[in-house]
């Protein structure tokens, strides 16, 4: 039990990951899919940030009296991944706008129906 409680951050990560992943797979609305994808990515950001944390560690600044500090590298990595995530979301939403202009709908089923009628 204590083990589960001690690693609560990882449980949050797993929960968010599954919610996001499920949303991507199950929703037919193209915007909701992107939202799910965002949650899925965010969970990974949290995972990286958790990894970098050192118990009792301070921010990684060299100063008198502070020895243990958290690993800044995962945080830097995740800044890059956040930028990538923002770009992906922007591109995804731009595509949704174009799809709506072309099909007049953002529901997957509706779009499939229109494609098949050709």
């Amino acid at each position: 039990m204590q083990f589960i409680l001690d690693h609560y951050n990882y449980w949050i990560v797993i929960f968010l990951m599954m919610v996001g992943f499920y949303t991507v797979i199950s929703r037919g609305n193209l915007i909701k899919k992107i939202a799910g994808l965002n949650m899925f990515q965010t969970s990974v950001f949290l995972l990286y940030i958790s990894i970098g944390n050192v118990s009792g560690g301070t921010t990684p600044i060299i100063a008198e009296g502070f020895r243990a500090y958290s690993n800044p590298l995962p945080h830097v990595l995740i800044l890059t991944a956040i930028v990538v995530g923002v770009a992906t979301t922007a591109l995804g939403l731009a595509l949704v706008v174009r799809i709506r202009e072309a099909y007049g709908s953002i529901e997957e089923e509706e779009i499939h129906k229109q494609d098949e009628s050709f």
Partner: peptide, 8 residues
């Protein structure tokens, strides 16, 4: 226009 859905 299916290029859009393919890209998505």
């Amino acid at each position: 226009r299916r290029a859009l859905t393919a890209a998505y």
